[in-house]
Write a protein that binds this DNA or RNA. Structure first.
Lengths: 185, 185
DNA sequence: GTCTATACGATGATAGAC
DNA sequence: GTCTATCATCGTATAGAC
C-alpha cells in the first residue's frame, strides 16, 4: 500500500528536480533562488520543502539527474552486440549532447571543487562512465577486432581514457558556447 | 607622474585579486563573500570597492588571472627553439598544474555557462591557448620532424585540439580530486 | 501534502570621517 | 585611498491554516 504513494512521491520529486535543472541551466546553480524553482515547477515553497530538505539537497538531485542521463546513453552502447569503434563511439556521444544539460553538467564540475557532497556524485558518475567506456572499447576490441579478452582489457584502458577526455572537452565546449538566454551578473 | 601612482594602483588591484583567487579556491565563486576577501587581503571594504566596482568585477579579474597564468606557461614552450613533441608537451603542461588554480579555473567554466562576461573571458583565453598550442605543435613538426610549413600547420590542428582536450580533462580531474580544505554546503 | 505569509540571517554595497 | 559603521535587499527556511 505504501507502494503507490511512494511512486507518487517519487514523481513529485522528479517533477521538482526537473524544474530545478531547467532553472540551473538558465541561471546557474547559485543564482537560482528557491523562488525561481517554485515558479518553474508551478508548486509552492511548502511543497518543495516537503520533498527536499534544503537547496543543497536540490542541487545534489539535479547533479545526479544530469550525470545519470549522460551515463544512460553510454550504457546502451556498452551492452550492444556490435560495439562501435572508439571514433564512432565518441562521435555518437557528442551527437547526443544536450546543451542545457551540458551547462548544468559543467556547473556541477565547478560546484564539485568545493562542495564535498557534489564532489562525491561527480566522482562516482565519472568513474561509472569510465568503466562503461572501458567495457565498450573492450567489447569492440574483442568482438570486432578479434583481440584476446585479457589483452583487450589492458589496451582498452588508455583508449577509454582518451575518449572520456575528448568527450568532456566537447561537453565543456558545448556548455560554454551554447547561447545562454540572458541573466548576466 | 601618474606613472608611479598607476603602478601602485595596479599593485593593490593585484593584491586584492590574488586574495580573491585564494578565497575562491577554498570556497567557490559564489560562497565567497566580500567579507572573506576583506579578511584574506587584510584590507577593508572601502579599499576594495575603491579598486573594483563590485563582486562581479572581482570574479572577472580572478578568471583573467588564473587563465592568463595557464596561458603564460604555454607561451614559453611555443617560443622555444626546440619545441617538445605533443606527448611531452602535454606531460609538461600537466606537471605545471597547480591544484588551487585548477579549482578556480574549473569554477570559471561553470560560471561561464551563465555569465556572459566570464564566458567572453573563458572563450578568449581558450582560443588564445589553442592558438599557442597550434604554434607549438607546428614548430615541432617543422623544426624536429622536418615537415613542410604549410602542411605542418594543417596537420597541427587536430593534434593541438587533442592536446587541449586532454589538458582540460586533466585540469578537471585535478580540480575535483584535489583535497578541498572543508566548507561544505 | 500543499498553500500563504513571514521571520531571520547573510551579504553586497554605501556614507562619511580621517 | 583607506577605514568603520551601517543600510537595504534578498533569499532560505519555517509556521500554521486548510
Amino acid at each position: 500500500m505504501p507502494r503507490l504513494t511512494d511512486a507518487r512521491k517519487e514523481l513529485r520529486r522528479a517533477q521538482i528536480a526537473e524544474a530545478a535543472v531547467r532553472c540551473f541551466g538558465r541561471n546557474g546553480l547559485e543564482r537560482t533562488s528557491i523562488a525561481d524553482i517554485i515558479a518553474e515547477s508551478g508548486l509552492s515553497a511548502g511543497s518543495i520543502y516537503a520533498h527536499y530538505r534544503n537547496k543543497a539537497d536540490l542541487v545534489q538531485a539535479a547533479a545526479r539527474e544530469v550525470l545519470a542521463e549522460r551515463a544512460r546513453v553510454l550504457g546502451e552502447y556498452a551492452a550492444s552486440d556490435t560495439p562501435p569503434a572508439p571514433d564512432e563511439l565518441l562521435a555518437r556521444l557528442i551527437a547526443a549532447i544536450d546543451p542545457a544539460e551540458a551547462r548544468v553538467g559543467v556547473q556541477t564540475w565547478g560546484e564539485a571543487t568545493t562542495n564535498p557532497a557534489v564532489r562525491d556524485i561527480v566522482v562516482d558518475m565519472t568513474d561509472r562512465m569510465r568503466a562503461m567506456l572501458h567495457d565498450c572499447v573492450t567489447g569492440w576490441l574483442v568482438k570486432v577486432e578479434h583481440h584476446e579478452p585479457a589483452e583487450a582489457r589492458e589496451s582498452a584502458t588508455p583508449i577509454a581514457h582518451r575518449v572520456m577526455a575528448l568527450y568532456q572537452a566537447e561537453l565543456l565546449y558545448t556548455a560554454v558556447q551554447s547561447p545562454t538566454e540572458e541573466t548576466a551578473s
